[in-house]
Design a protein around this nucleic acid. Structure first.
Lengths: 373, 373
DNA sequence: CTTGTCTAGACAAACGTTTGTCTTAGGGGT
DNA sequence: ACCCCTAAGACAAACGTTTGTCTAGACAAG
């Protein structure tokens, strides 16, 4: 038991040296971080007192001199309280979980950056977990995250199945679940913006692209499109409706479906794409079939991702304020975690039409370039 | 202990009901998760025994019947051990921290998805923190993450300043720091691939784009380009060297610098871009100046991001195996965390040349389209 | 009957905090 | 000299686990 200390029962030095090894920056000899107890021993105080000082607990009488001493020691040993222990004791972790289908997709990550911004600003940390739409993981991760102390959950584009015992905010969630606040785009408004734009340009034969079934936005967005088309008197033809299926995050997503569409030889002058990525693939498919965008076919994207403005031709699209939606989700979640009961069940954010180069009046008026029927 | 309950003065039922309210899914009346102690009281055992059973601790003699009973109860009450408490006790958190400049950038998130894949597969969770290259955050976050129990750190494109008391793996870190393993692209090989490709096509007047100073890859990549150019006998002219400055993740990054380059009216037939995003902006700048890609100017990108293959024209580029690099980083980190001492200081992964549509032989041979001098 | 061995499980300490209560000593008022 | 008050800090319990040691009883061997 002797060795480096040997000071028998005396507390004296916290982990020995730290002054013996001035060349080693601030690392105490044993690599374990210095704890309250060690600090207290060093100061000849008890851990509780040190805690009280360091946390500025009100209503405790500790003379100024002692406070200084304690703080000096904390600095000297680079004391970092263990959030683990504190969390256990206070039953507060300042941690939330973020559930996301895919980490490398532009849509999800923009939302996440909004979430991250707000959470870090408020002193929270978060675990993120990605599930690639696998149902068992969607089922399992919330439990694991709760086991790790998550006090709330944000689910991005994730089909949660049931209520959870902690507050949950869903971004682009389609299902109504008790206890889950949905932050969604105002899809009705989005549909109005894109369809009206095309309609006013003169388009009457419009092809529509439906999102993948597992994507939470798909059905809501489709419903809005159908409703808006009806209002405008725009026909939605089954032969001009294409359905995305694959779980892709590259433009390849939109390529084959538009190829198929072209094989029908059914006349159309515009496409409403499910998102920008698919729109880029769609444009490529059109160009490969010797059709010009927008002269022969107009196309409206969705999301306004980074490269939308720099694609060639520049993408006309519906902008989703993804970053804002993330921030909003985080804000609502934190409010709910602080016990705020009167939260909305749904929170809709407004989209914006960004007109660029992929939409133009249809050439059909002057010359029919496409379609036999 | 008599029947299922009613055992005299006793603990009896864990949190009251749970059978009294069969309509409430598996939530015990008080919303707090059920703990070992509660379970033990219910079973008439002590918490330690329950723990032993649930963790299958070897070398303990517990009759099979009791084990069944315990496991049944755990299932019944949907017992979820508190990772917090367990971590505190075992001094193991199975948590790492990931430091990243930006959450919504394609480069970073591809690496993160590799990291996430590996970590989740191995049963680890991670905190991510983004710092937008702010030095004080880069300084502060590692401490906070350690306070939260991170056993290791992965830093993506982040300029760490000093050694840390836990294992660290850097992806695209440029600095050599003791205790930090660097996972980097083989930049020399990358430079050879792109320059040789252009050289073999016949390009001799090549413009080069240097990365932002805060981007970890910038200096290494530049050094390799300089060395390779010398080997090939390719001249690097200062007037044909442009420097990225802005902290952008959109193609706007590359637009103004190429505009400037064009103002010099110095003849060049190809551009080596710092990355794909900047290349897309560069192409736009060239096209806006009535130059065709690749007929008038060839361009080689870097990274091979998602849209590279779908841009118009399709981008010739150097592919970085970003996902793999993330996985590799996570793998090395976990090894080091398990006490593996003999880790490499640097781990280089090979790039790949992807030839698409933005490179072609220079027209200069037949007709000089650009440049006065 | 004594002794020993084994089984089933209890007990207690520990991880690093926080927080309510308790103790001690000194000081002031009468 | 007595009482009371206050300041300064100690003490202990608690958060939910894990793990080394200990005990009570059962059983078998001598």
């Amino acid at each position: 038991m002797t060795s480096s200390d040997d000071g028998s029962q005396t507390p004296v030095d916290p982990r020995s040296d730290a002054s013996m090894a001035p060349h080693k920056k601030a690392r105490n000899s044993s690599d374990k971080p210095v704890s309250l107890k060690i600090l207290a021993d060093y100061l000849g105080l008890c851990p509780a007192t040190v805690s009280v000082v360091l946390n500025n607990v009100p209503g405790r009488s500790i003379p100024q001199e002692t406070r200084e001493r304690v703080r000096a020691a904390a600095r000297k040993f680079n004391y970092q309280p263990s959030l683990l222990a504190r969390s256990l004791r206070k039953q507060r972790t300042f941690t939330v979980g973020v559930l996301v289908p895919e980490l490398s997709d532009g849509y999800h990550t923009l939302v996440m950056s909004g979430i991250g911004d707000h959470l870090m600003r408020e002193g929270y940390f978060y675990f993120s977990a990605h599930h690639r739409h696998k149902p068992d993981m969607i089922e399992e991760y919330p439990r694991l995250l709760m086991g790790r102390g998550a006090e709330g959950l944000i689910a991005i584009d994730t089909a949660l199945q049931h209520e959870l015992p902690i507050p949950v905010v869903a971004v682009a969630g389609h299902k109504k679940i008790p206890g889950v606040t949905n932050v969604v785009l105002d899809h009705k408004r989005a549909a109005e913006l894109s369809l009206r734009h095309l309609y006013q340009l003169g388009h009457r034969q419009v092809a529509f692209m439906r999102g993948q079934p597992f994507s939470s936005d798909s059905s809501d967005r489709w419903r809005s499109i159908v409703a808006t088309a009806r209002e405008l008197g725009l026909e939605i033809r089954p032969e001009l409706t294409i359905q995305l299926e694959r779980d892709l995050t590259s433009p390849e997503l939109g390529y084959p479906v538009v190829q198929q569409l072209l094989q029908h030889r059914r006349r159309f002058t515009a496409i409403v794409s499910f998102n920008d990525i698919a729109a880029i693939g769609a444009i490529r498919a059109l160009q490969d079939a010797n059709l010009r965008v927008p002269e022969d076919v107009s196309i409206v994207g969705f999301d306004d991702i980074n490269i939308a403005a720099y694609h060639n031709p520049r993408l006309t699209t519906i902008r989703q304020p993804l970053h804002d939606m993330g921030e909003t989700a985080a804000r609502i979640l934190l409010q709910r975690m602080q016990g705020f009961k009167d939260y909305p069940e749904e929170f809709a954010v407004p989209p914006e039409l960004i007109i660029r180069e992929t939409t133009a009046p249809p050439n059909g008026r002057t010359r029919g370039r496409l379609g036999s029927t």
